[in-house]
Structures are given as C-alpha cells and as structure tokens.
Design a protein around this nucleic acid. Structure first.
Ligand code: FES
Ligand code: FES
Lengths: 144, 144
DNA sequence: AAGATTTAAGAGTCTGTTGTCAGAAATAGT
DNA sequence: ACTATTTCTGACAACAGACTCTTAAATCTT
C-alpha cells in the first residue's frame, strides 16, 4: 500500500469535513459523526484527527457543539499536506528498491522509469486541493 | 512504501543472480554470496528466496556448489512476477483511499487521477524484464 | 562412511502500525 | 453550581512485517 491506513482515513475525514462544511465552513463537526459517515472506529479516528489538528490542518473545539473544522479554506489545503502530516513524505523520495538516497548518487536500475511515476504521483498529491475533491464528490455523488 | 522490504530485497537478489549468471546461466549462486553482495542478512534473504523458489521463479540446489539460479531465462522474468510472488498484486488494484473495489463500482474522488499513475506503475512492473535490468546494470555500472 | 557445505523449515523475537479504552479537561445549557 | 457533551491524553492490547536462530535434510568431497 502506498499510504498507511491512518493516512487514508485522514484524507477521507478531511474530505468529509470539507463536504459537510460547504454550507457553513465555520461550524465544528463532531468526530463521532464523521466516524459514522466513514464507517471507521471513533477512537481511532480521534487519534488521526489529533495529528491533523497539531499540524494546523484542522482546528478543534471541545464541549457541546464542538468537533473539528478545517483550519484553512479548502482551496488552500492539498492532499500532500495531509500525507506529510501523517505519513511523512518518504513515499516521494525513496528508491523503489529501498537503496539509500534515490537520485542523488548513482541511480539504481529502475530509477529512470520509477522517477517518472514518482513525479506524477507527487504532482497528484501536490496539486489536488480539498476544494476540488469535495466539489467533485458533490457533483458526481461519489463515495468516500 | 510501495513495496515491502522483503519484496525490494527479492528484486535486488533476482537482479544479482541475473547479473552474476551472465557468463554461466546454469550455475547455482550461494545465498550467502548474494547476501554479502546486497549487504542484507543471510537468514532473512534465505526466507525471501524460499518464496521465490516455491513460486518457480528460481531453482535451488543443496550442498556444496549449491545455491539458487533463475528458473527461466531473464528475458522471460518480469518485475511483476517477483512482486506478485512476495507482496501480491494488491498495489495495482486497490483504491488510493482504501475503499473496497477500486474502479468497479462508484469511483472515489481521486480515482481518475490515481488510475493514470497506477496504470503507469503497473506497466513499469509488467514490462520491465530482469534481462533489461541486468543489461543496464552492467553497461552503466549501476548499484543494486 | 564421515565430515563439510548449503538450502529448507519452523519457532521465536522485535518493532511499528492498528485499534481500544479509561480518565482528564473544556465547554454549553440549565 | 451541576450535568451532559465532546475533544485530549496516555496507556495498552492485538497484529503484521521484519528479522534471528536452531535444527533438519540434501549433497559433495575425501
Ligand atoms: S535510486 Fe532507485 S529509484 Fe531512484
Ligand atoms: S476507487 Fe479510489 S482509487 Fe479507484
């Protein structure tokens, strides 16, 4: 798997918050409600969202009517921000064969081909905003 | 990481055998010698190569002058064979967000973009033969 | 036949990820 | 002030992947 379980859930949660926040971006969404929508463990999701709040990607509020919301408008939040916060960026910088220091020194036999795919994947994460994803999700009634 | 540690070592080992077998493709290469060349644990490599021999990608022979060799000419062995044997093919068929059944049902919001990268990666593994890799390795004196 | 070499197999350890839980802290409503 | 709600924190169990170790089995050399 390219991303860890935590990271995939983190992205889906951010997307859910973004979609639900379309009408009122200021409102806090309870974690329990998000967990139900994504059909994942409430406690596990709590852990993941804590990482995202520490990374200033989300903001949280305790107590009744509390929950989490995006810390920035979804146009300014990109997938790579979430991946970096949860998984780190190693995916986009490591050698496909696990050799140390991809690209900088002598390349490995698969480097040239892999570099193409790697760049494309990195661009995908770097250029895809939460706004675009939530728009698509609503328009085409996609699942998440 | 896209591939597991075991899988990356498996590919590097197959490549090492292919390179060393350029002069005598019939010869068995001792696992200990391969482990030294790749700088990995002998016992761990043994485990990985057992999987490859069971998958009929390599053949082994016990006793003095024993070891492993490719079961087929390197022109007929592709990276995907090794990945399938060790990691399975899940990388090329799973949803980037971890949702069940990528593509077949309603796609997820990142499906269209991810499908492109996924196909490119799959093609890379499916079309890259051990022969090509070992040729490149020898020509350009690459590391593995 | 005996001993050395080398892979096969299985059990066991270690580590990081996944997932659960209980209690603390903050907040709103009454 | 009290209670209900909700996130925060730390501890911990369960699991998978990574890695080690020991013993067995096969084969060659002498
Ligand atoms: S050095 Fe191996 S992929 Fe870049
Ligand atoms: S359905 Fe998510 S990547 Fe295909």
């Amino acid at each position: 798997m390219l991303l860890t379980q935590s990271c995939m859930i983190g992205i889906r949660a951010a997307l859910a918050v973004s979609v639900q926040g379309k009408d009122d971006i200021e409102a806090y969404r309870p974690i329990r409600q998000i967990a139900d929508a994504l059909d994942v463990s409430f406690h596990f999701l709590t852990k993941i969202l804590q990482v995202l709040t520490h990374a200033k990607i989300m903001e949280s509020y305790k107590g009744p009517n509390g929950g989490v919301r995006l810390a920035k408008p979804p146009e300014e939040l990109f997938l790579i921000d979430i991946v970096e916060a949860i998984d780190g960026t190693s995916v986009f910088s490591t050698c496909l064969l696990g050799l140390p220091g991809c690209g900088v020194e002598t390349p490995c036999p698969v480097h040239d081909e892999w570099a193409k795919s790697k760049d494309q994947i990195e661009r995908l994460f770097r250029e895809t905003s939460l706004a675009k994803l939530s728009d698509d999700t609503c328009e085409k009634l996609l699942r998440f």
